[in-house]
Design a binder for these strands. Structure first.
Length: 139
DNA sequence: TTCCTGATTGTTACG
DNA sequence: CGTAACAATCAGGAA
């Protein structure tokens, strides 16, 4: 057990509580723009929502689930969040890779037009599918 | 009818 | 180092 909880973040961003821009219907004009992968919390939320949906057919709204999920999330132990965090990590890996292609494409698209076969090796080889998500920490 | 907001935390990136 | 914003969701409120 770690005595000091990581309060480093210190939620110094309470300002964002106020509807931070973020329009729902705002679509990105960049089709390749990689969307951020769901955090461990979101991964947990994904499953939690379904449960909440059945547990609360009345459904209140996203806020209700969010609060419930957040409350429970904090109640969860690191080990319980481990699987969610592990999934989040995997998503992040893909995100990073996607980001590379996104950046690369921009570099290619906005820059030159010379590219055909050579660029093949120049570009990022997405054939790197190794173990991935195989981190098991034995207690 | 159609669009947008709300609420949760995490993660990522820039100055 | 710190801040700023955005990631999903689902139904209701507003114009």
């Amino acid at each position: 057990m770690k005595g000091g909880e990581t309060k480093a973040q210190a939620k110094g961003t309470d300002d964002r509580l106020k509807t931070r821009g973020k329009k729902a219907g705002k679509k990105t004009k960049d089709p390749n723009k990689p969307k951020r992968p769901p955090s461990a919390f979101f991964v947990f939320l994904d499953g939690f929502r379904r449960e909440f949906n059945e547990a609360n057919p009345n459904n209140k709204s996203v806020g209700a689930v969010g609060k419930a999920a957040g409350a429970k999330w904090k109640s969860m132990s690191d080990e319980e969040k481990a699987p969610y965090v592990a999934t989040a990590e995997s998503k992040k890996s893909e995100y990073v890779k996607t980001m590379q292609k996104y950046n690369m494409k921009l570099a290619n698209g906005t820059n030159t037009g010379d590219d055909d076969s050579d660029k093949s090796k120049s570009e990022v080889n997405d054939e790197e599918e190794g173990g991935s998500a195989e981190e098991e920490d034995d207690d």
